[in-house]
Design a binder for these strands. Sequence first.
DNA 1: CTGTTAGCGCGTTCAA
DNA 2: TTGAACGCGCTAACAG
Lengths: 325, 325
Amino acid sequence: MKPVSRDEVAEAAGVSSATVSRVYNNPSSVSRNKRTAVLKAAEKLGYVPNKSASALRRNGTGIITLVEMKKKHRTYYWGDLPIFKWFYTDVLHAVKHVIDNSMYQLNIASASNSRELEALKGHTDGIICYDADEISEVEMIAASGIPYVIGHHTKAFEGFSRSSTDNFEGGRLQAILLKDAGCSKPAYITAHLDMVQPHLDRLEGFLSVYPEQNVRIVGDGIGRTAGYRAARKIISSADGIAAVNDITAAGAGYALSEAGIRVQHDIPLVGYDNMPLSIALPFKLMSIDLQPAEIYKQAAVSLLLRLSGDTGVTESVILPGIVKS
Amino acid sequence: MKPVSRDEVAEAAGVSSATVSRVYNNPSSVSRNKRTAVLKAAEKLGYVPNKSASALRRNGTGIITLVEMKKKHRTYYWGDLPIFKWFYTDVLHAVKHVIDNSMYQLNIASASNSRELEALKGHTDGIICYDADEISEVEMIAASGIPYVIGHHTKAFEGFSRSSTDNFEGGRLQAILLKDAGCSKPAYITAHLDMVQPHLDRLEGFLSVYPEQNVRIVGDGIGRTAGYRAARKIISSADGIAAVNDITAAGAGYALSEAGIRVQHDIPLVGYDNMPLSIALPFKLMSIDLQPAEIYKQAAVSLLLRLSGDTGVTESVILPGIVKS
DNA sequence: CTGTTAGCGCGTTCAA
DNA sequence: TTGAACGCGCTAACAG
């Protein structure tokens, strides 16, 4: 019932315990024969390296922290909404899967300023920053001195280690969906273009497919009621609607339904984020999936690489996908 | 920059290092004077106990695991829905807060059968079981031999360590809400009463306020469309509607709106679970809050107690609350 | 109530 | 390429 230790594996494999250690930490420094012998013995005995001992010896914490970047100062931030937590859960599970297969353990935390970030210093060997989307945040993270990788609206931040989505591409996919449905003069509902870079990126992606003069850009805010208001304005002139996110698109859907227009059938409607709203809404929504799990899985992999001595920044971009249902 | 160790605190406080350890693990065994001296010194130096060393020495993993109980065999299980993840996130943060202030670290996992549960054995010192709601699950957990506390639909399982909600009380609160709104012949939309104990408990709680002959019980399923269908049947006879959960209530709300009836204003409508749907729905929903954070916070506290030598089962019940907005 | 002491399992020198 | 030996910070057993 007691867990198998390194020494038992060493004895079974006929090598020293140091060699067993090397097999797990620096495999290439061990000869082929001994390496396979060790792995075979470990497999047979069911050996699992002890992460606590590893961390203790290495003078580290053995912990990687998934840090939620809170935006307390911001008037507009979707991440604070309860419904957005589904997103976080997906990310958490993806990161966990990667970290579980390393010598590290996963922890979670949140931080909204540099003081809270500094407070993590003794408690973690590296951080994955969830939803860092302002240059000030990104610089703060880099300045903390903690090894880091940031996600997910971070495509613009060159020179920083990051794993990001491509909002321009997402906007382009929104346009493709409407184009495929036969729309020629769509409306695009959005807002906060000066404040929220991702919104601008999405719009520009959309406009890369439809020429600007054919697109009616509307909106005085984000959310169900704003989407409703915006849709009412263009309901008679547009033959397709895209919105900067699903909630806003939902509002537009209500406006259509109210006017006796069948969503998708009469007027195609596409949102963004692939929120799990279909269960609550009385109509279908097309959407764009950021693939949050994939983004942060990549972030975790990059961070582990970095922690094992790899230097230099890593910059990956995960392309969003189309959701038709 | 190097973290402060126990010995430095001991020296600063003028005690032995063992006493410092005791202050953190068994405070009552240390005299008042020395204890305050130690805490003062620790505070001044910024001492944080090293969890890895603690776990190593204790021959444990130093890990407490929040285990999601998956119901792969069940045709009906809300927990699988993406939208339900908001619930999980709240629980996670509550548990984390408790565990962070202990010598343990928090990990997460999922399990759907006893094999997967057994696999956790070497990896954790104790488990908090998220959403165990069948006696077979509960018995499986107890049989695993891992110290455990289970949540949250577990009020019925006497003799097992648990922290649970009171669905009967929640159903009663639903009725109170309708009564306060002046309803005398309400309808209750529910289903799966034979399969899902919490649904039955909620209904019975409801019927403890309204006599059974005054309540129209309807429903052929759960969800938006089932709620819609059920509401259509009683729309002309009921003066208030309660549903077994928010999604089903949402469907009922659509039926009312469609008939030109104003939700809440003309006919009060109450759901259950306090799901974050208000942002997407075109009407308000009253609801019942399980207080998931509170339930699992209590579970974590109980588990820690147990792990520090406290024997015997702990059984706590958290009362749900009313949400009017 | 308090101090002394012996490892927990592992990573990393240092020699060979 | 390999092995011997040390000690990371802490808990628990024991002695006083």
